[in-house]
Amino acid sequence: MASASARALRRIQKEIADLNANPIDGISYEFVEDNLFNWKCSIKGASDSPYKGGTFYFKLALPEDFPFKPPAVTFATKIYHPGINDEGSICVPILRDQWKPSITLATVLSVIHEKVNNPCTDDPFEPEIAAQLKNDKAAFLTTAKEWTKKYA
């Protein structure tokens, strides 16, 4: 039945209205081919993070049974980050096992924003980068800035 995805669509429209009313600093989004289930977002590196000056694109794909299944986030821009792996997957608990249908997309986006701009060693996706961040922070910062300049 189409009603499930129609409901998902209405909720998404509502979320977009909310996002337009209270935009998140540093995050912009557009829709791929006017498909509200397929978002192309970009995030600006905060000035106090090693990703300063970079714009990182990521894809936010909402599943058909949206509020019951979490959206899938994939980074398209290469980023040197302990929580984001080579394939662009980001390790955020609320997008995995801690997902709840009542979590809004605004929350998701701000959590991603927070996660990207504050690289920390909690739940790492790239253990090597996390280890480097822990042991040799200067080297990490250098590489991260380099990658930002190169790719973002």
Partner: peptide, 8 residues
């Protein structure tokens, strides 16, 4: 079963 959410 077929009320509302059967599509999934």
């Amino acid at each position: 079963l077929f009320i509302g959410h059967a599509s999934s």
